[in-house]
Simulated assay, not measured.
Amino acid sequence: MSLHALALINASDYRPHALHGVDRAWAETNCYIDVWIEVLHAQGLNPLACLPMVFANDFDGDQWTFYKPPHEDLFALYGIDVQELNVWRGLLNNATVQLGRGRLVLTETDSFYLPDTAGTDYRTNHVKTTIAIQEIDLEQQKLGYFHNSSYHELQGEDFVETFRIGKPHDATFMPLFAEFVRLDQVQNKTDAEQAAISLPLLRKYLARRPRNNPVSLFLPVFIRDVEQLKEEGMAAYHAYAFACLRQLGAGFSLGAHYLRWLQQHQALQFEAAATEFDAISEVTKTLLLKTARAVMSKKAVDLVPLVEQLAVHWQQGMAALDSSLAGG
């Protein structure tokens, strides 16, 4: 018997949201926001409305902010209530209870057993990631789940290993973090209604943005990091690129999409700011490639001008955003 929170989804027929389209600058951003984009999209809800938190992104010393849609925003915009799941009976048992009550389950899991990561982590690397469980079929040992940019299915051994079925008791095993998602109060608001709620959220996150230009603060740390990465190699580079450069570029790319959506439904003009944030995305992609080449070749490469460009785009983008909001 299949337990599912939403109507049954056929992975082969699923079409991701446009934010995960093939024409996007960043096909994937981070596992948590990517999951939410698709969870909202699968319910006919517009994920663009929950993105203003990216404008508070900061350089946090060893990473750029791993941005997530705050739970209070999800409730205000969509009526979605997220609570922590106490995995006291084991993930499979607790998840089936929640699915039986019509609730999705978000959980950290190991990419090693996720076939959608074939070519990167599947059966190769043990990497923590977040999925949203939509369907469990115990008889067929099948799991339907949202992950990264789409909806997927796994079966058989991957199912057994994901849920640790038949594993002997291990007192040292710590269950990964999980949440359940109440959907009984979901409200499918119009874009105009969502924009009216989202605009104050934008102002809230702008008030929380860094006081000083975070890209300027990132610059000297980045230059030192690149020299260290040359010694550590490409595996370290890939981890660094995800934690730093991808979060920087993809975050502001989402911000540009958000602003263009918002201006369609509010009497405000955000194109100048969106253009600056798009530039952060594009320059960061260039920086990503040049950094990879520098690490592989171990040669001296002057990456300072690119980061200085990013700092200017951040400053000009925030100034343009302030100006637009002051006019409203």
Rank of each mutant, 00 (worst) to 15 (best):
Ser2His: 08
Leu6His: 09
Leu8Trp: 03
Pro16Arg: 04
Gly21Cys: 13
Ile33Lys: 06
Gly44Thr: 04
Pro52Gly: 02
Phe55His: 01
Asn57Gly: 15
Phe59Ser: 03
Trp64Phe: 10
Tyr67Gln: 09
Tyr67Pro: 01
Lys68Val: 13
Asp81Lys: 05
Val87Phe: 05
Gly90Trp: 08
Gly90Phe: 07
Thr96Lys: 11
Val97Phe: 04
Gln98Leu: 12
Leu106His: 07
Tyr113Asn: 13
Gly119Lys: 08
Thr129Arg: 09
Thr130Asp: 13
Thr130Glu: 14
Ile136Gly: 02
Gln141Val: 04
Lys142Ser: 14
Tyr151Lys: 01
His152Phe: 13
His152Lys: 10
Glu153Gln: 13
Leu154Trp: 00
Glu161Trp: 01
Thr162Phe: 02
Arg164His: 14
Phe177Tyr: 08
Ala178Met: 08
Glu179Ile: 01
Phe180Cys: 06
Leu183Gln: 13
Lys189Arg: 14
Ala192Lys: 10
Ala195Thr: 00
Ala196Lys: 11
Leu199Ser: 00
Leu201Arg: 00
Val215Phe: 04
Ser216Cys: 07
Leu219Glu: 09
Pro220Asn: 11
Asp225Gln: 13
Val226Cys: 08
Gln228Phe: 03
Gln228Ala: 11
Lys230Met: 15
Glu232Ile: 04
Glu232Tyr: 04
Met234Asp: 12
Ala236Asp: 12
Ala236His: 11
Tyr240Cys: 03
Tyr240Asn: 05
Ala243Cys: 05
Leu245His: 02
Leu245Glu: 02
Gly249Ala: 08
Leu254Ser: 00
Ala256Thr: 02
Leu262Gln: 01
Gln263Ile: 09
Gln264Ser: 15
Ala267Met: 10
Gln269Asp: 14
Gln269Val: 09
Glu276Cys: 15
Ile280Val: 13
Ser281Leu: 06
Thr284Ala: 05
Leu288Ile: 08
Leu303Arg: 00
Pro305Arg: 02
Val312Pro: 04
His313Arg: 15
Gln315Pro: 00
Gln316Ile: 07
Ala319Trp: 04
Ala320Ser: 15
